[in-house]
Design a protein around this nucleic acid. Sequence first.
DNA 1: CGCCTTCATGTCAGGCGCTGCCATCACTAG
DNA 2: CTAGTGATGGCAGCGCCTGACATGAAGGCG
Lengths: 195, 195
Amino acid sequence: MVRWEPGTAERLQKAALELFATHGYEQTTAAEIAQEVGLTERTFFRHFSDKREVLFQGQELLVQAFLDGIAAAPPEASPLEVVASALRSAASFFPDERRPHSRTRQSVIDRNPALQEREHHKLTTLATTVAEALRARGVGEPAATLAAESGATVFGIAFTRWLREERSLADLAAEVLDELLTLAETAGQALRPTR
Amino acid sequence: MVRWEPGTAERLQKAALELFATHGYEQTTAAEIAQEVGLTERTFFRHFSDKREVLFQGQELLVQAFLDGIAAAPPEASPLEVVASALRSAASFFPDERRPHSRTRQSVIDRNPALQEREHHKLTTLATTVAEALRARGVGEPAATLAAESGATVFGIAFTRWLREERSLADLAAEVLDELLTLAETAGQALRPTR
DNA sequence: CGCCTTCATGTCAGGCGCTGCCATCACTAG
DNA sequence: CTAGTGATGGCAGCGCCTGACATGAAGGCG
């Protein structure tokens, strides 16, 4: 017999997602979520720095996946090749079984501006971390930031498609990244004809 | 003799920036800002949807500058060429005289996570609008979103450098965009050797 | 076995952000 | 002169979030 049920944060997250999905984010108070799992509002805020975080906590693992992918890239790889490796690694973080859960979560986010704001912020934070890892590999500026932000952009677009189409995130990410290279190639021919 | 002083929102914004810069964002209440210009908290929230917005309202003009730049691009221009045109147009929105003001404002934002969140959100919103304009020109997906987000990324990086270095934003943006093309070119040679 | 420490939780008070509702009151149109 | 318009004030109230202190079960230790 344990003192307290373990996994308090997880139970709060589960309850929160259910309430948000059924009643809406703004219509659900932090106190209600806490009550749902037999806790108080004060305890809710001990586990999450603010109400929105209950939907986002846990993304450190995704960041780690990116970093692992970066570490797995060969030393001579160019910045965007490293990013491609990071994307492959990150993609494995979202196996297809996870799609249903991700869909409900995303539908909640899509219906609330404040949550979208937090989501974009997390993506940007991710990009910042990736940029730092690239710099640690010797990539200069603005190349590091540029490559990192591009990686985050590609990931974001691929993820959105992954929610809709029944294809693997890895495939989609590779495809979107390829599309970015095509865009750049086309523009390169026009914008700098003398190289 | 007018009924009320005109430019209420502007005076609130000015007072807010000063208070935020001297006392910090969180240490300044909306009521204090309002009081500073002889108004009440209630009126503050009639002009700004939330406390953070007092620092961000007015960005519609920047978005418009982007759209103008898009409209100015020739019909046959590739997506990233159109974005380049948008960046040139947007750059004129920040003449060098504006740098001091932008610096104070940015220093406030840099010291507060919630404000950074809003800033990133505005950039993403900008990208969404640009993507829509590109789609209206016939650009497909994911090319439109990709090009738009890349444009926002380039703008963000260039803007950061513009705050530090005494160079024109237009030059910096062109430079950063060029760097992105270089990155893509290098990666393209490695990631798709068979084209 | 009994004491003590640890620590997740509860309780309470309170500040701030933000909103709805109604009143005010200068000015304006007719 | 009267009715309408529109920015503002005043006020009540809810939800978010925090600091301070109390509680009580588990575990360590003599």
